[in-house]
């Protein structure tokens, strides 16, 4: 299992893996917002957490369709499914999700504080947003794995995966953003939305890989 984790990280980081593409896309989203909203620093600071979250959400959806399709295209997926008696397929999916998150989504979380500066956010707001991204983005990956598994047989499933996954990712977005806001706006409590966010991640970590494994098993042809 560790071998699979390391392999997927290595593939993600190497040329063509898409880890850098996500960060660049994230940067592109963040950089265009001030041009669209205008040079109102107070406004930018206020909508900052939401912008960071939307950017990170879209960027993390970007590479999801390749999660299983790359393995299917070169035949590895068959071998991973065949190994189902040694390594439960759901566990294999889980490890692939974690590797994908480490290689493609963690860089977004690390880049988020820097982009927060671009949006004129307060340090505490930046910290809270980065923390909520760290806790919330795995949930997006686990939901995304289900979408990627369902669309694995489709040649151009990229957009379909995003559309399938987006509604399911909305709760993550809502609680992530509201926790980030609560850190800046005094009366609102930070912990309740943050804990719900953590609960969402744990919940999706439990059911996402099982559902994705089921979809993969029946997608084989």
């Amino acid at each position: 299992m560790l071998a699979l984790y390391l392999r997927d990280i290595r593939l993600g980081v190497r040329a063509g893996g898409g880890a850098l593409t996500g960060v660049l896309f994230f940067l592109a989203v963040i950089a265009t917002i001030p041009f669209a909203v205008g040079p109102d620093l107070a406004l930018l600071a206020r909508i900052g957490p939401a912008i960071l979250w939307i950017g990170a959400l879209l960027a993390s959806l970007l590479g999801l369709d390749r999660l299983f399709q790359a393995d299917r295209d070169d035949g590895s997926l068959d071998l991973l499914i065949l190994a189902g008696d040694r390594h439960m397929l759901a566990l294999t999916v889980m490890v692939k999700c974690l590797a994908h998150w480490t290689a493609s989504v963690l860089p977004l979380v690390i880049a988020a504080p820097i982009f927060g500066l671009v949006l004129n956010m307060e340090p505490i707001g930046i910290g809270a947003t980065a923390l909520t991204l760290l806790v919330g983005t795995p949930a997006i990956t686990f939901v995304g794995a289900v979408g990627a598994a369902v669309a694995v047989g489709l040649p151009r499933g990229g957009l379909l995966v995003s559309v399938l996954v987006l509604p399911l990712a909305i709760p993550v977005l809502i609680f992530g953003v509201s926790a980030s806001y609560a850190a800046v706006n005094e009366p609102n409590p930070f912990m309740p939305p943050f804990l719900i966010l953590a609960a969402l991640t744990l919940f999706l970590a439990a059911i996402g890989p099982v559902a994705a494994a089921l979809a993969l098993r029946f997608s084989a042809d």
Partner: peptide
């Protein structure tokens, strides 16, 4: 299919 990664 060979089940090997071209990048590795």
């Amino acid at each position: 299919l060979n089940g090997m990664k071209p990048a590795m």
